[in-house]
Amino acid sequence: MSGTHLHVLHVHGHSPVHRLAPEVKVVAMLAFVVGVVATPREALWAFAIHAFFLVAVISFAELPFGFVFRRMMIEVPFVAFAVALPFLGGGPRIEVAGVLVSLEGLWGAWNILAKGTLGVGASVVLVATTEIPEILRGLDRLRVPRLLTSVAGFMIRYIEVLASELRRTRTAMASRGHDARWLWQVGPLAASAGALFVRSYERGERVYQAMLSRGYDGTMPQLDERRARGTEWAAALGLPLTTWMVALLAIVGS
């Protein structure tokens, strides 16, 4: 599953993309991905344009391509699934390099690969150029319910604390020869999960006491700074709007 080291997701920098207000970047990223997904899979030219824009943003943000590529490895499981599709798919079959594959499966594989890759790329760019607390603040300003962002804030704050506790437990188990390969060996894992949970619950209680001590009364205080300027919105939304135009053209043209 996902990496535990949150700071490796971010690339420190001062590019124009880094400096944009977080809420602007979140909206632009979401809109871009929606545009990509709405594009009919047969419109290969449209995907070329989408990819070009994504690569342009990556270089504009001064992100190392190697970094972006490594982070995009998260989609490997779906690449694997996509590769299997042409063989599992139904419908008419065509011959590719001497192997009979499903045409529908081939298109499906392309669809997942193209859209999945562009989607993952957009998300990687967002997180690489925006500190995670900033993203949460952006969501706050986009009027995402406060309860949701508060829970997310606590979650992000404690992922690393819990992960390092879990890592210690796992190290202790592995150093005593535990290497579970079958379901009936799940016992020690379940037990260590239970112990970890009690520790995190007790921590939750202490955190709550610390919050009460500083006047918490059930709602997180509003700590807001600058809002995004109109020019920022215009600059950042240009890209997804183009994506939507391309998608629209592709839909009309197909």
Partner: peptide, 16 residues
């Protein structure tokens, strides 16, 4: 709220 956040963090970590 803090408990829900910790439960979420716990689930996230356990998914690893």
């Amino acid at each position: 709220v803090p408990f829900a956040g910790l439960t979420a963090a716990f689930i996230f970590v356990l998914q690893m």
